[in-house]
Structure formats: C-alpha cells, structure tokens
Simulated scan of single mutants.
Amino acid sequence: MDLDLRKVRYFTAVAEQLHFGRAAESLHIAQPVLSRQIRALEKDLDARLFERDSHGVTLTSAGRQLLDDARHLLATADATRRRVLRAARGPRRLVVGFRAGVVVTGALRAFGAAHPDVEVKARRIEWDDQEQLVLDGTVDLAYVRRPIREQGLTLVPLFSESRVAMLPGDHRLAGKRELVLADLEGEQWLRYSDPGPDDLPIRTIEEKFECVAAGTGITLVPQSVAEQYSRPDIAYVPVLDAEPDQVFLAWEAGRGAPLISHFARIAQEQG
C-alpha cells in the first residue's frame, strides 16, 4: 500500500510534539480525527508507532524510524510541488544556491549560454539552511561547505581552499604574515550552533564581521571570503595548519533532471 502523505504529516506533528492535543491544534483538526488518522497509518504499516500511557506519548522503534524517513519524504514532496508550481507559472528556471565567498558567475553564464530558454537565478544560502533549501526545492542545487548533513543529497566535490583567521583590526596577531593554530590558543572563538537561551546563532558573514570587530571572538573563514570581503576594522591572517575548507555541489538524491546534470558538469569543469 502506498503511503498517504497526509497521514505522514499528521504522524510527524505528533512525533515532534509527543502530544496529540498540541499536534491537533497545530494541524487545525480535531484530536479524535488525528487519533483516527494515526491508527489508520499504523494499520497501513502494520506497525505500532506510538506508546501511549498515563505518562504521555513516546515513539516506538518503528516510530523513530518513520520519523527519520518522514522528514525527507515530506521535504521531497514539498520540493516537487514547488517545482511544478514554478514551471506552471512561467519559463523554466534553475535556482542555484551559493555560500559566501563562492563565485558562481562563470558557471551561471556558461549554463545560460547553453540554455537560453532557461531562467537562471543565484541565491545566497547560509550554513544552517544549506541542506534544507535544496531538499525543500527552494534551490535546485547549491554550492555548499562542510559540515554537511548528507542525508537525501547527492554531493560532488568541487574544490578546497585554505582558511584564514578573522581578527579584530587591533588584535595582537593582526599584523602577522601567517599563523598556526597554536598561536590562537586561549582565544575566544565565535559560537555558531547550540546558542545559550539568550543568544542568537551567528548565520551570515555580516554578523561575523560585527562580532569580530566588537571583540566578541575570532573565527576561521575560507580564503575566498577574505578576498571578497574587507573592512578596515577586520584583519585576515593565513593559518597554515588549519583544515582546508571544502566546497561541494549538492542536489536532491535521485533527482536526475538533465538541467541539473548539465550544470554539475559545468561546475566541475570550472572547479
């Protein structure tokens, strides 16, 4: 039996909140209706997905597996819907995501010359949404940097580049020609994920500038960022033993669209 995506959405809401009442409210349906849909899904799958007792709701092992798969399944369905609507409303389009520092102009021009009937767009993406924007169809493919959550993606390595320390302009090491990681021991490093309750995660290069210039901390960035972004109150110094930054081209696994394949070939040729 084919999976009913509506039931999977209902299941995901309950699984993420572990509360039928709150899940029903978020879905704008009555709780008895939600309970019936979950029981129907369990019958379809011939597996119990939740344990319900006086202490609340917990996922079974089958439920945990379905939740892992459901997020990718629903993202793929949403991406398909978005691409179909986009095609119905106008000319064919290819949207390419890119991280700060990555230059995509040459690849976009080469692809556009080969496909004059296709509208080519570029969209800046950040470290915390690079995978999701590919999986939900916001971009068709993207230049991404490690770390990467690889589930559901096809990844093609393109190039690597050295990394440099981003320091306040008046930092004690700002005038050095080069550094090693040991020179940076004891420094305060910027935090990007798992912020405290009163913190916001640092997402963009502009936010990094402000934090570093203010003396909040230092960070490492790819060499291309240093080449493209400059400020008088920011200094960049090469760090010789820092792990290189790797850039990949990513698109949804299993999606074999000819336009994506052609763009991937161009991106690999240009490196």
Rank of each mutant, 00 (worst) to 15 (best):
Q37Y: 09
I38V: 09
D44W: 11
D44V: 05
L49H: 03
L49F: 09
E51I: 15
D53H: 06
D53F: 11
H55Q: 11
L59I: 10
L59Q: 04
T60Y: 04
S61Y: 13
G63A: 04
G63V: 09
Q65I: 14
L73C: 08
L74W: 10
T76I: 12
T80Q: 09
T80F: 06
R81I: 13
V84S: 05
A88R: 06
A88T: 03
R89L: 15
R89G: 14
L94W: 02
V95T: 10
G101N: 01
V102I: 13
V104K: 05
T105D: 14
G106R: 07
R109W: 03
R109G: 14
F111P: 10
F111W: 04
G112M: 08
A113M: 11
A114C: 03
H115L: 04
P116F: 02
D117S: 05
R123F: 07
E126F: 04
W127Y: 14
W127S: 08
D128L: 13
D129T: 09
L133S: 10
V134Q: 00
V134S: 00
L141C: 06
A142R: 10
R146V: 07
P147M: 02
E150Q: 11
Q151S: 14
L158V: 01
L158T: 00
F159Q: 15
S162R: 08
S162A: 06
V164K: 01
A165M: 03
A165H: 03
P168D: 15
G169F: 02
G169K: 04
G169H: 03
D170W: 12
